[in-house]
Design a protein around this nucleic acid. Structure first.
Lengths: 148, 148
DNA sequence: CACAATTAAATTGTGCACAATAGAATTTTG
DNA sequence: CAAAATTCTATTGTGCACAATTTAATTGTG
């Protein structure tokens, strides 16, 4: 029973992921302050700049977040005039999110951010490719094990 | 200027880290519910089981969190009788955190959790070693670039 | 010793993150 | 076509996470 002692926190993969996530948030903070966006808000815009007029559901699927997180976040962006929310005409259960012209214009300002990340960390998209793939595979495994 | 387009979210390392972190939290949830602990609370106990009678400052350094996060978390654990808080006698600016016997007893119950993680994900401590190292190095780089 | 600078914790306020629930619309089934 | 099941968003409540500020104690310097 006591064969397996409690592992130390420094040896645990989950903690390494947790700490790296916080570090990324802190790292982005000063850059995102220039756009007056939080990190999760920035992620939402990355999706919208890529695919505008998306439902809350589809956005949640993309970001692996639920509506309880996304709804208030989007409402704050709507209050600032960066996005619009409206019910889908065909299926009124769905709410579609669209960029306003102000929200679309943010993209130009945001272009400096990924450049700053590459410069600041020495991480190129290709250089971190293997790490990224492993993390996505890990996420899929963690979320997929639910049904057992 | 437009040489570098906005990268897609699926290509970004920061998002892979972010999503894997949430997936870990979700994965631990049902296991930690058995102990009535949240994931950050579990991390605090991992530290305390390893090194009891630690200051808030040292705990924050270990977990990369500040007192604004730790203080209310610890107070909730104190209210449940799992830890004790008291001022250091030599330096009264510091608050030391100690396990109660109940808090210490939790460790025995918690031993099942790392086993479940290994079983559920197929991740052994050794198997994930390279990934863990890369993430810790990444965290250090992200937190270290602050001064420029 | 006295006064300034530093250190440490707590407090306050904003914003995620998710579980649980509710409510409305659509789809399925008999 | 009507009732039941499903799908989707919103709401409520709890708990991080961090910035900024406040308060208290310690350390350093003359």
């Amino acid at each position: 029973m006591a064969d397996q002692p409690m592992p130390h926190i420094d040896q645990m993969l989950c903690f390494a992921v947790y700490a790296a996530g916080h570090a990324f948030t802190r790292f982005y903070k000063p850059r995102l302050d220039a756009l007056d966006l939080t990190y999760p808000q920035y992620l939402v815009f990355l999706v919208l700049w890529e695919r505008d007029d998306i439902t809350v559901k589809a956005l949640g699927d993309k970001l692996f977040l639920d509506s309880g997180t996304i709804t208030p976040l989007i409402k704050r962006l709507e209050a600032r005039g960066l996005v619009q929310r409206r019910r889908d005409e065909d299926d009124e259960r769905q709410v579609r999110i669209r960029l306003t012209s102000e929200g679309r214009a943010l993209e130009a300002k945001a272009l400096a951010i990924p450049l700053a990340v590459v410069e600041g960390t020495g991480l190129s998209l290709q250089g971190a490719e293997a790490l990224r793939r492993e993390l996505l595979a890990l996420r899929a495994r963690l979320d997929g094990v639910e049904e057992r």
